[in-house]
């Protein structure tokens, strides 16, 4: 009886679906979080008779064959990389990216990670760092006596120091883009790593062709839509329930079979 195992694949798939929805809802207020979606595909088919096979010697063919599917599998959980809303925080070191691109972060082990969460701060040495204390590439040092810091749309960081009227440029933030940003690997802490499927990173100045612009004093919110998630949750729960009903029905049929010849 295949129905049992087919329904089991259905239940597993819906379980994955609920897990993805749960993660989306849990990260509703995570800066720069991108909504995940589970994508499903049908499994292999067993061909019992192939459509188009000859049904007689005179050349008539079967209009439809008999193909029995084996259920469903999760093909991928992909990120929907649409822009999240920008939220005003008034913090001078909060930077939101409007458009494509990622900030490059230097991890303590020397490798690069990428993020869209621009909730930066300063290290004791005055370096611009993430909330984990990792340096934001290419490395920007803010003078310790700076009165105010401005970051413009093109990523230019300038600081006003006492005794000088004109702000001085202390560095430029860069953005990194990928041929396939969906292929980046999420490693938690809002960080992403390059993978063979993301393609190699290309860095550029914010605002130039193909890169987004920066917005100081704002953070990008997650692009999770609560209504959409709750709807998916209900659908997934009902689908799970229906698959479990198939298990029960298949079980009942097997039980009846076993009772035959009692």
């Amino acid at each position: 009886m295949r129905a049992l195992s087919i329904a089991a694949t259905g239940m597993l798939a819906q379980q994955t679906n609920v897990e993805v929805v749960a993660n989306n809802l849990a990260n509703m207020n995570t800066t720069g979080f991108k909504q995940g979606r589970a994508e499903f595909q049908d499994l292999l088919y067993q061909n019992i008779s192939v459509p188009g096979a000859n049904s007689s010697d005179s050349g008539t063919v079967l209009p439809s064959g008999i193909q029995i599917g084996a259920g469903v599998r999760t093909a991928s959980v992909y990120r929907v990389t649409t822009q999240g809303d920008l939220k005003n925080t008034s913090n001078p070191y909060d930077v939101a990216i409007q458009g494509p691109g990622f900030f490059r972060i230097q991890q303590p082990d020397g490798t690069d990670a990428y993020t869209r969460a621009g909730d930066f701060g300063l290290s004791p040495e005055g370096q611009l760092v993430t909330d984990q204390g990792y340096t934001v590439a290419p490395g920007i040092a803010i003078p310790t006596n700076a009165l105010s810091v401005q970051i413009n749309a093109q990523g230019q960081v300038s600081a006003t120091v006492p005794g000088q009227t004109a702000p001085q440029v202390v560095g430029t933030l860069e953005l990194t883009r990928f041929p396939n940003e969906g292929g980046l690997k999420a490693v938690g802490n809002n960080l992403f790593l390059e993978t063979p499927s993301s393609g190699s990173p290309q860095s550029g100045v914010p605002g130039s062709a193909g890169y987004g612009t920066l917005q100081q004093g704002f953070l990008e919110t997650s692009n999770v839509n609560a209504v959409e998630e709750i709807t998916s949750l209900i659908t997934a729960q009902r689908a799970y329930e229906m698959n479990s009903k198939v298990v029960t029905a298949a079980d009942d049929m097997l039980q009846m079979t076993a009772r035959l010849g009692g």
Binding site: I6, Q14, A250
Partner: peptide
């Protein structure tokens, strides 16, 4: 009975794929 089993397999596959695009 064989036909019923077959029907059940097809229904199970339809329901398992209710979320398959």
């Amino acid at each position: 009975q064989i036909a019923s089993y077959r029907s059940m397999d097809v229904i199970a596959n339809n329901l398992a794929n209710v979320s398959t695009p």
